[in-house]
Each structure stands twice: as structure tokens, then as C-alpha cells.
Amino acid sequence: MKALLGLAVAVILALTAAGINAALPRNQTGPEPAEGKTTQVRVTAVVDGDTIRVETRGGRQLGRVRLLGIDAPEVAHPPEPAECYADQATDLLEELAPVGSTVELVTDTAQPNRDRYDRLVRYVDHDGLDVARELLAGGAARRYEADQALAREESYSATADDAQGTERGLWGTCREPGDRSWTSS
């Protein structure tokens, strides 16, 4: 009887696991993404439309932080000119996370701690607002397709789709012939 019960439990677990794996996106192989640790820091500089510099509240430099889940147009890197809407994206980030303000950095359990440029990769919240979501809503950035799903995936996708559908920001501005296309960085 115990052997039969053990077999039934094993079959149920296998079928449950198969059902869970079938329901996950192809790129989702680990646990469900979730928000993790939150740290309060001070913004010391806005680098471009998706990167800030921060320090601890005690003044220790933490370096650059890449906003998780978005990609903003690149600022000028001579001899390359700025991409279309780069200045507007940077300006909006400066409004949303002003230099000197305290922001919350939030980890995502399914995402790496740092990117290939050694920047911290975090959600950034300021005064109750998700800064990346606001950049998406304003059309100042597009979704960055990560290898793993994001904890804020649903919100970011819907917001980006809305901005693109209504041609806000870069979606309505960067369509002229000769505009330099922009890619993920």
C-alpha cells in the first residue's frame, strides 16, 4: 500500500511539475521572478536615459545603476551622435530621479546583480513612483528584453505597448527618414 501511495504521489508531482514548466515562458527556467532587497540611496548624477550614479546615504559611492527592464536611446559617444530622443529621455530621468534625491533600489530575484558593464541592475523607485515605468509611459524608453522574466513584466509591457500605440515620446518623434535607429546597450 505504501508503495502504491508513493507511486501516486510521484506521478502527481511529475504532472504538476510538467504543467508548471509548460506554463512558464520559454526563457523562464528558474523560480518565479520576485522583487527582492530594497536599499535607499542618494542620486549623484544622471548619466543618460536609463543610468544613474548613486551613493549610500552615508556618502559611499556605489557607482552606476542601470534601470532594470528598459532601454533608452544612447546619448552622444563621439564620434557617434546621440540617438533620436536621447536628450529628452535623459531630461525626463533627471525630473523623475533628481540629483540629490533619495531613491529606492530594488533587486529582482530572477535578474543578475550587475550587467556586462559592471553597473548595478535595479528597479528605481522615487516618491512612490516606479521610475522606469514612468519613462516607458512617457515614450522615453522601450522595454529591454531580459533573458529571464521580470517581477514587473506585466506592468512594463502594458505601459510600453500603450506608449507605442499612442505614439508618445520617441514613438511619435523618431520616425523621420534619417533618424538614427537605436539598439539595446
Rank of each mutant, 00 (worst) to 15 (best):
V43F: 00
A45G: 08
V46W: 00
V46F: 01
G49R: 05
T51C: 09
E55R: 03
T56K: 00
R57G: 12
Q61C: 09
G63L: 04
G63V: 05
R66E: 04
L67S: 09
G69C: 06
I70T: 06
P73R: 00
E74Q: 12
E74D: 11
E74Y: 06
V75C: 09
E80H: 14
P81I: 04
P81E: 04
C84W: 04
Y85N: 06
Q88T: 14
D91R: 15
D91L: 13
D91Y: 11
E94M: 13
L96T: 00
L96I: 00
P98N: 02
V99F: 04
V99Q: 11
V99Y: 05
G100T: 00
G100D: 02
S101K: 05
V106A: 05
V106Y: 03
V106T: 13
T109P: 08
T109G: 03
T109D: 04
Q111K: 02
Q111C: 01
P112Y: 07
V121E: 06
R122T: 03
Y123F: 12
V124N: 00
G128E: 05
L129M: 14
L129E: 14
D130M: 06
D130P: 00
V131T: 08
V131F: 10
A132P: 02
R133A: 15
R133D: 13
E134R: 14
E134G: 09
E134T: 12
L135Q: 13
A140W: 09
A141L: 03
R142N: 08
D147P: 13
A151N: 08
A151M: 05
R152I: 10
A160F: 12
D161T: 13
D162C: 11
Q164T: 12
Q164S: 14
G165Y: 07
E167Q: 15
E167K: 14
R168V: 14
G169K: 01
L170V: 11
W171F: 12
G172K: 00
G172C: 01
C174Q: 02
E176K: 15
G178H: 02
G178Q: 01
D179G: 11
D179Y: 10
R180Q: 13
S181P: 15
W182N: 03
W182V: 10
